[in-house]
């Protein structure tokens, strides 16, 4: 199983992703209105989907950590937030590039775009917070609280921006999707998903090893050491 995750999963992910992109870039027909520019969909939409998956994992894991503290959940939270941020940033950049030929501008204050930008800032703050707190237990608890509050905020942001921009028509791409397009999109999405799972597993292992090293580290202050009666004073399992 370990061997499959280490070598098989990335290989599978790359093969499926390459197949999906080949289908999208070569095999599928150009869009009736957007022409070849529409082929950006096969990279942009999967990125957005897997970023959402990563953020959803982060939210669930944060709630679980507050219910039952464990380093595994904390490591999963760190992994999913970081990977969600990377994928979401890539998704937003590709979306902006797609917006240039279709809307004429890179950036518009459309609810989806704005909410995503705010989401990226929120999770940047989350990761910065994790950097700035040394105590692993406090870091885990506080970052869970921040993750929950940040995730609750996103639907509120979406609604408020939609109201705010109510004078402007929300740009939406006409749904004239051919079956070829759906297939290419699905294959690309699965490839991206496998790649994300592989990233998540690798990052999770790394975060977990880091946590265990931190907890195993003897405390610097002698008084703490005496009070704790040992190196591992952690309450977290």
């Amino acid at each position: 199983m370990g061997k499959f995750i280490k070598w098989g999963l990335p290989a599978l992910a790359l093969v499926v992703l390459a197949a999906g992109w080949w289908l999208g870039l070569v095999w599928a027909p150009p869009d009736r209105e957007m022409g070849d520019v529409q082929r950006i969909m096969y990279v942009h939409v999967p990125l957005q989907w897997v970023a959402m998956v990563a953020m959803a994992i982060n939210f669930v894991v944060a709630i679980s950590y507050l219910m039952k503290a464990s380093w595994k959940l904390d490591a999963a939270a760190e992994a999913s937030a970081e990977i969600g941020l990377v994928l979401g940033t890539a998704g937003m950049i590709t979306g902006a590039i797609w917006g240039r030929p279709t809307w004429g501008v890179y950036w518009s204050w459309d609810p989806r775009l704005t909410s995503q930008a705010i989401m990226l800032v929120t999770y940047t703050g989350y990761l910065v917070l994790r950097r700035f707190v040394e105590d692993p237990e406090k870091r885990a608890t506080w970052s869970s609280v921040v993750a929950i509050i940040g995730a609750i905020n996103l639907p509120i942001v979406w609604f408020s921006v939609r109201w705010w921009r109510s004078l402007h028509q929300v740009q939406s791409t006409p749904k004239t999707v051919d079956p070829e397009m759906t297939l290419a999109l699905r294959v690309s999405a699965f490839g991206m998903l496998f790649l994300t799972i592989w990233f998540l597993v690798q990052r999770y292992r790394q975060a977990l090893a880091e946590r265990q090293a931190e907890v195993a580290l003897p405390d610097a202050l002698p008084s703490d050491l005496a009070a704790a009666g040992g190196a591992n004073s952690s309450r977290v399992a």
Partner: peptide
């Protein structure tokens, strides 16, 4: 943030995106 390092940076970084609505 009052208990973290670099609290003066951290508070706005956390608070600003949150209070946008």
């Amino acid at each position: 943030s009052s208990n973290a390092r670099a609290r003066d940076v951290l508070l706005p970084l956390l608070l600003f995106p949150l209070v946008i609505p």
